[in-house]
Write a protein that binds this DNA or RNA. Sequence first.
DNA 1: ACTGAAATAGTCACTTA
DNA 2: TAAGTGACTATTTCAGT
Lengths: 145, 145
Amino acid sequence: MDETDWALLAHLQENSRLSLRELSRRVHLSAPAVAERVRRLEESGVITGYHAAVDLEAAGRPVVAFIRMSCYGSHCVLRDPDVPSWPEIQEIHRVTGDACSLLKVATGSMAGFERLIDRLAPYGQPSSTLVLSTPLARRPVIPEP
Amino acid sequence: MDETDWALLAHLQENSRLSLRELSRRVHLSAPAVAERVRRLEESGVITGYHAAVDLEAAGRPVVAFIRMSCYGSHCVLRDPDVPSWPEIQEIHRVTGDACSLLKVATGSMAGFERLIDRLAPYGQPSSTLVLSTPLARRPVIPEP
DNA sequence: ACTGAAATAGTCACTTA
DNA sequence: TAAGTGACTATTTCAGT
C-alpha cells in the first residue's frame, strides 16, 4: 500500500463507478497500471466489493434501529443460519459486553418493527435504540498517520 | 419504483461497478433505457452514491467498536462540527434512549482506541462495545412485501 | 424504449526502465 | 517487478424514431 494505492482507494470509496481511465488521470498513471493496482487491492482483500448506497427512507424503510441482543445460550441469533437472510436485518455484529450481538435493522413501519422484535424475542432479550438521523453515514478509510 | 428498478437496485447494491450494458442484459432492456432509469434512481435520492467497501482490518484498522455517547448538554459530539472529520470515526447516528449518539469507530491499535476515548470523554460519557466479528456486513435493500 | 453511430473506455500483447 | 504503448473490443452517449 503506497501513496498511489491510498489515492485510488480514496477515489473508489467516494465514487466506485469512476472509470479506470478517469482514475488513471487522477493518479497520473496509465490505465493498465491502475487496472493492475485495483486488481491487487481486490485480491489482497483491502477492497471487498463495490456497492450502491441506498437511502433507507427513500427506499421505503424509514424505521432504522440498532438492536442489542442478549441471547439465551444456545438460542443465540448468531447460531441461526436463517437470521442473516431476514430482509429487515441490515448488519449483524458479534460484540463484547453483556450483549452477544448488535443488529442494524430497517423496517417499513413501526408495526413492521414491532413484528421484527417479536421474531427476535425467542432468541434472547432485545434492547432497541431507534436512529433519529445519521449525521455521518460513512467516512472513507485513510492511512494511519 | 417498478420491478425493473428494484432489479437494477439489487444488482448495483451487489456490484456497483457493473456496466450499464451488463445491467441492460440482466434486466432485458436496452442500455440507454437502463442509463435513464439509473439516473432517475440517483436523482430521486434512492441511490445516494457508489462506494468501494474496505476491509478495516486489511486496511490497518483492526480495532472496530461502537461507542454510545451520553453527552453533557451543550458539549454534545453532535454539536461539534469537527468531530465528523476525525479519521477514526466511521459513522455517527443520533439515537433515542439514554445515549444521544452512537458512533462506529475503527482504530489501528488498542492504544489508538484508548486515545480516541480520551478525546471523546470531554463531550460526555462514552460506553464502548468492541466488534469481535461481523457475520453480516451489509444486506441489500429489497422491496417490502 | 429502441436503434445506430461517434466518442470514450477496457483489455491484451508487447516493450521499456 | 511495475509501468507505458498501441491495437482491438466493449461500453457510453446522443440523435432520431
